[in-house]
Amino acid sequence: MSKQNRAFRELGPLVALIALGVFTAILNPRFLSIYNLQTLGKQAAIFGIMAIGETFVIMSGGGSIDLSPGSMVALIGIVSTYMIVHGIPVFIAILVSLGLSILIGLWHGFFVNKLKVPAFIITLGTLTIARGMAAVITKGWPIVGLPKNFVMIAQGDVVGFPIPVIILFTVLLITHFVLEKTVYGKHLRATGGNEVAARFSGVKVEKVRYIAFVVSAFLSGLVGIIVAARLSQGQPGVGGTYELYAIASAVIGGTSLSGGEGSALGAVIGAGIISLLWNALVMLNVSTYWHNVIIGAVIVIAVTLDILRKKSLARSK
């Protein structure tokens, strides 16, 4: 991918996002109310942060994919709130929960790198196990009675910007820098692009993948905390199928499922599109029976259009 090409990589999905926004705003001006934009921002933060993690994993190539984010959201949400209601200080509970997320990422990396278990399988295992553990810990009951300083993580705002949105932008800034400006980012692209050649060039392919899985698990855990704070409770059932939205967001944002290509910004734009749809379909009073049909169609159209656009770009070169 040439330099010029890369600068415009997120253009397609960005245009789609803006077009959807403008369309909705024209039909219902209340779409642009501060309160609604905050709602939208919080939702986009949830999907966006997960999609960034997913982007790291998918970029690392070799068929890597992370199916665990949705269940991780439930598990880490439960673990953190469980600790908090059992008297552990909020700060420490969060640190421990994120630590657990990192361990789960390492666990994925270990199976993929050392035991050569396909990422699909090991993360599918986590999808079931994490969801199951959340149910085991809670017996299905929501964990309630969370202190204000925890709930603030998702319900507070700074000059109108919801804290989840601020977290999203922080994560985006850091990951964008890592992917575009650091040796790790380059090695990640190389590993995904051609694992053998990367290894032959002295890239520590295993280490690169370990980090990708850890980033994804860590960010899913972070989202778990945000979601728990947003709902004011730990819910064992939350986040089902979120992994699919995370994968779809990453792909809409230009991540190639075969690895090597992808961007954090694109993933966030992809997440923005899906979140905007969730919001807009309600704002536009579309019958709820149609919601999933439309979301699915938009995902297919967005990805197809982008692939066609890239093809025509490549041809005109």
Binding site: M1, S2, K3, K186, R189, A190, G193, N194, V196, A197, A198, F200, S201, G260, E261
Partner: peptide, 13 residues
């Protein structure tokens, strides 16, 4: 193509 180069990366990279 398999071992020497990452084909979709630039010459510089």
């Amino acid at each position: 193509k398999l071992q020497g180069l990452i084909l979709q990366m630039s010459v510089k990279d």
